[in-house]
Simulated assay, not measured.
Amino acid sequence: MSKSEKKIVLKSSDGETVEVEEAVALQSPTITHIVKDSCVGNEILLENVTGQILAKVIEYCKKHVVVDGDGVSSEELKNWDTEFAKNVDESMLLNLTLAADYLKIESLFHLITETVARVIETKTVEELRTFFNVENDYTPEEEAQIRKENSWGFDDI
């Protein structure tokens, strides 16, 4: 990318600002829409994305930006995606999923939701409650009855 390429400043919900090349930022249809349809200047507030999550989104977008003569094969990119997903902390997965959805970055959304699916398939019901921050409002008797009525769904748990 040339040094004269236009930059866009992205501001997270917690006040962190990051200056990125326009080509990187415009991988998000949400940001593209904001840039093309409004007069926001060159700073865009992303109300639903924290600085920590924005940094991961930018890391992903920088790798995926299409640059003439970049020479990155689809296999190399697939391997990079696999490593990227492996290195995302479980506590970040849901927020990164929400950010990818909000920013409408489909390839990131699919990568992270597939990762979430792999994570949750190995968890117990109690671990899933913790992971998704779901309060168990059933009494032990109610839960036992539900497990009995739906035993087919609890065979592997």
Rank of each mutant, 00 (worst) to 15 (best):
Met1Asn: 10
Lys3Gly: 14
Ser4Met: 15
Lys6Arg: 12
Lys7Asp: 07
Lys7Tyr: 03
Ile8Arg: 02
Val9Leu: 00
Leu10Ile: 05
Lys11Tyr: 00
Ser13Glu: 04
Ser13Asn: 02
Asp14Ala: 08
Gly15Val: 08
Glu16Asn: 07
Glu16Ile: 02
Glu16Lys: 04
Thr17His: 02
Thr17Ala: 01
Val20Lys: 00
Glu22Leu: 12
Ala23Leu: 15
Ser28Glu: 12
Pro29Glu: 12
Thr30Phe: 00
Thr30Trp: 02
Thr32Pro: 01
His33Cys: 08
His33Ala: 05
Ile34Met: 14
Ile34His: 07
Lys36Ser: 13
Asp37Gln: 13
Cys39Met: 14
Val40Asn: 06
Asn42His: 03
Leu45Thr: 08
Leu45Ile: 14
Leu46Arg: 00
Val49Met: 02
Thr50Leu: 03
Gly51Asp: 05
Ile53Glu: 00
Ala55Ile: 04
Ala55Gln: 10
Ile58Pro: 00
Glu59His: 04
Tyr60Asp: 02
Tyr60Trp: 15
Lys63Asn: 12
His64Ser: 03
Val65Asn: 05
Val66Thr: 13
Val66Tyr: 03
Val67Asn: 06
Asp68Val: 03
Gly69Asp: 10
Gly69Thr: 09
Asp70Cys: 11
Asp70Glu: 10
Ser74Met: 12
Glu75Thr: 14
Glu76Ile: 07
Glu76Lys: 10
Glu76Trp: 10
Lys78Arg: 14
Lys78Pro: 09
Asn79Tyr: 13
Asn79Gly: 06
Asn79Val: 11
Thr82Lys: 12
Ala85Met: 11
Ala85Trp: 00
Val88Ile: 15
Glu90Asn: 11
Ser91Phe: 05
Ser91Val: 15
Met92Pro: 01
Met92Ile: 04
Leu93His: 03
Leu96Ala: 09
Leu98Ala: 06
Ala99Ile: 03
Ala99Leu: 06
Ala100Thr: 11
Asp101Ser: 10
Tyr102Ser: 01
Tyr102Arg: 02
Leu103Gln: 05
Leu103Asn: 04
Ile105Phe: 05
Ile105Cys: 07
Ile105Asn: 00
Glu106Asp: 14
Ser107Asp: 13
Ser107Pro: 02
Leu108Gly: 01
Leu108Val: 03
Thr113Tyr: 06
Thr115Tyr: 09
Arg118Thr: 12
Val119Glu: 07
Ile120Arg: 01
Ile120Cys: 14
Glu121Thr: 10
Glu121Ala: 11
Glu121His: 11
Thr124Asp: 11
Glu127Gly: 07
Glu127Ser: 13
Arg129Gly: 14
Arg129Phe: 13
Phe131Trp: 07
Asn136Cys: 08
Asp137Tyr: 12
Thr139Met: 09
Pro140Leu: 09
Pro140Asn: 04
Pro140Lys: 08
Pro140Ser: 04
Glu141Gly: 07
Glu141Ser: 15
Glu142Lys: 05
Ala144Val: 13
Gln145Tyr: 15
Gln145Ser: 14
Ile146Thr: 05
Arg147His: 12
Lys148Pro: 08
Glu149Cys: 05
Gly153Gln: 10
Phe154Thr: 07
Asp155Trp: 02
Asp156Phe: 04
